[in-house]
Amino acid sequence: MEVLSKEEIQFIDAYLKNSDVRFADIRMEMVDHVASEIEVRMSEARSDFYDTFKWYMAENKLSLLKQNRNYLMESEKKLFKQMLRNLYSLQGSLLVIVVLGLVGILFEFMSSKYVLMFPVSICILAMTVYFGLTRKTRVRFSSLERIGFYLIFLPQYIGIALNYFVDGPLGGYSYIFVVLSVLIPVLLLQLGFQNFQFYKNKYQAIS
């Protein structure tokens, strides 16, 4: 059986990267699949690497790119399920109780201006911690990048939504809004730590 050289593997990797398969965790599995199939075809047809590669890609490129999109969707669902699991755990329940209490105290003793600034501060803090944690990662991992995207997006959403509450009195809706706006970045940060640890342990060789 033929075994592809390091350069040939790098060629497949670069080709997929240029075809918009950006994340290392997705590409790594795809490279192995493509390389395994090319090795089998090269052994059977006694053809060279580049001819076999062209032949394979002509047949399968669309399917590979579709697989890339499916993986990203699956990755989002995985994060969402993981977040729900975290929320329904004992730790998650305690977190909800703490946030409910803390926001309740803030509503009692602080002016609306400061109370409404609190979620934005938590978001910025979560974002800073998260990017500090992941800044040394050499390659792009799908889940880590999605979490980063949500953490960047969240303060902007909160900023826009704050406009609806800033002029009115503090009440039920603003309480729910502040609780959720504090809870979500904390849950995202927890998710970030878990996924960072997962990639660090499982993808040690490429991270």
Binding site: V3, M28, D32, K81, A205
Partner: peptide, 19 residues
Amino acid sequence: EADGLLDVEVAKVDNRMRK
């Protein structure tokens, strides 16, 4: 994998990473 039914392991095999 997302449902927690499979665990993964990554190893270097034949000049590439394998999941």
